[in-house]
Structure formats: structure tokens, C-alpha cells
Write a protein that binds this DNA or RNA. Structure first.
Ligand code: SF4
Ligand code: SF4
Lengths: 141, 141
DNA sequence: ACATAAAAGACTCTAGTTATCTTTAATTGA
DNA sequence: TCAATTAAAGATAACTAGAGTCTTTTATGT
């Protein structure tokens, strides 16, 4: 019962893409190197992000990935849903009407998702760049 | 990425045990019948609940399971932790200091857990018994 | 057409969940 | 003490989801 590694990779990948100079693209092999992943594996993750509309991909010579021009404010929840799918943590197959157990579990999960929806990647990137400007700690990311 | 079925079984089992007349015990075979589970499988779940201190077990002729005399206010979170273990949904193996990603994910999860800790099984049982007293819907539980 | 890069498909490997069967240990009551 | 009862523990098997590799196909620019 934990988030898949792919979600972690996806979040880091999104940060990398968001920190690109405006208009630039980046290829899967370069992204894979930064996280020490195989390009083909990361490729599947990137495809999911693309299908979810969080990034855009162009094949071919000067291709690669870039942020979506449409969805501007990507949240943590967007990334998570793109990778894990939009499912519920608790899912009883028999959906008895008025089920109290499901209600409690869903409500609690909703609290988490609300927070994840409010947390935008733009804020994350800001905080990371802020940290990098202060020469206090050495980050490997 | 979902709760295991065992968590579902554990929650239902706890409700059954809590609805017993004061002082009564119930055996694993009877509990298993109600949920149409094999007794040996449910037994493992019950053992986890026992080890977590949520219920008490006594072997032997007039044995069985009963609520813990000590832990009176059992929450949803208690049951979940007993079954799933007390782990985090998001867990990056490299714990870089000042990691912003982990922080967001943990904070959000904390929102869920706080709600699950506030939701007591006693309240759940009350609501279920309330429903049963009104002859509106036919519940299979 | 040719080089480049993403997307898709088939496939393997591993770990965790679900489950069954068997054996062991503890308790009660005759 | 002995037998019946009941939980606990262990071994094992089937299934599933996640992680990852390799190969083929499709799209793009020069
Ligand atoms: S009461 Fe809710 S959780 Fe229990 S079986 Fe019915 S639907 Fe599932
Ligand atoms: S920054 Fe946080 S999430 Fe990223 S690798 Fe470091 S610890 Fe893990």
C-alpha cells in the first residue's frame, strides 16, 4: 500500500521539464540520465503524462517533451492521477447503499486529495530554486 | 495502490465484535461465516488485530475474541495500521535534507490520517445500528 | 531517404496479496 | 490427567501488480 516508484519519477521529471528555459524541449534519454533510469522505462511514464495532458511530446529530429501549453497549473494530484489512475484507495466491491465504512474512508481520502490538488508544481519548483540559491546544503537533485 | 482486502475484512470484523453483548466472545469460524471467508485466512487478520491490541483472544474451550479492555476508542486508523502496517504512502529511499516533494506528499497524507484517527469505530457502529432500526433499506451486512 | 525521437507491444522478473492446509500451543471441563 | 476446543504459527501455492528490458512501429525534420 504505497505510491508506485513511477509516481516519484514522474514528479521529478515534471520538475526537470518545468525548469527548462521557455520554449525548450528535452528528450527522454537526457531525462533518464538525470534520474538514472532506463530510457524505455521512463518513456512509459512520459507517455502517461502526455496522455494526461500535462506535457506535450513531438517525435522526430528536433522533438522531445515540453510543458503543456494548455494545462498551466499542474498540481501534485494531476501527476499522481496520471500515473496511478484516478481510483480510490478503499474500494469495496459490494456497494451497499448507505455504506458507512466506505463513506468514512472516502471522506478521509478526499482530505488528502484536496491538499494534493492545491499543491501546484509551480510552487514546488519555486521552493527548490530558492533552496539552490542558498549555498547551505548540497542537493543531489 | 489501494488498501488490501484484509483491511476491509478487519473493519467489518471489528464491527461484528463491537456489536456483541458486553462480555461475550466470538470464535473465528462464526466471524468467517458472516463474511464468507475461510477461517484460517481470517484468523491471520484477527491475529494482527490482537497484536495491535485492538481485540483480545483466549484460546481453549470457551475462548474466542472480544474487544480489548484497554484500548477503548478504536479508530479507523488503528485498524488500518494494524493490517497495513504504519508506513507512508510516499517513500523516497534517498531522503535528501529539505526535500520539498516528500514534504508535500507527507503533509497531504497526514490530512487523511488525521481524519481516520478522528473517526472512531464506536461512531460507525452507532450509525449502522441507527440504519438498522429504520426499516428503509435492506442491508446485507 | 535518412536520421532522430516518441509510442506501442511483448516479455521477464520480483514482491506482495490472497488463500489453503497442517502443526503447535493454550485453555477449559470432565 | 485427558480430551475437546480454539487461537497461533508455519509452509506452501496461486494470483496480481509493479518494475523493468528489448524490439518494433510511427511521426517529424533535414
Ligand atoms: S457495508 Fe460497505 S464496506 Fe461493508 S460490505 Fe457493504 S459496501 Fe462493502
Ligand atoms: S528530492 Fe526528495 S523525492 Fe527527490 S530524490 Fe531527494 S529525497 Fe527523493
Amino acid at each position: 500500500m504505497k505510491y508506485s516508484n513511477a509516481t516519484n519519477y514522474a514528479l521529478h521529471t515534471m520538475v526537470h521539464i518545468m525548469r527548462l528555459p521557455e520554449g525548450n524541449t528535452i528528450g527522454v534519454q537526457e531525462l533518464a540520465e538525470k534520474q538514472k533510469l532506463s530510457p524505455t522505462y521512463l518513456s512509459k511514464i512520459l507517455t502517461k503524462l502526455t496522455k494526461a495532458g500535462l506535457i506535450e511530446s513531438t517525435p522526430g529530429v528536433k522533438g522531445g517533451y515540453t510543458l503543456s501549453r494548455f494545462q498551466k497549473d499542474v498540481s501534485f494530484l494531476d501527476v499522481i492521477n496520471a500515473i496511478e489512475g484516478d481510483t480510490n484507495l478503499f474500494n469495496c466491491s459490494l456497494h451497499h447503499e448507505g455504506c458507512q465504512i466506505e463513506k468514512v474512508m472516502r471522506d478521509a481520502e478526499e482530505n488528502m486529495k484536496e491538499e494534493l490538488a492545491n499543491q501546484l508544481l509551480s510552487g514546488l519548483v519555486e521552493r527548490i530554486e530558492e533552496q539552490h540559491s542558498k549555498p547551505i546544503s548540497k542537493e543531489a537533485d
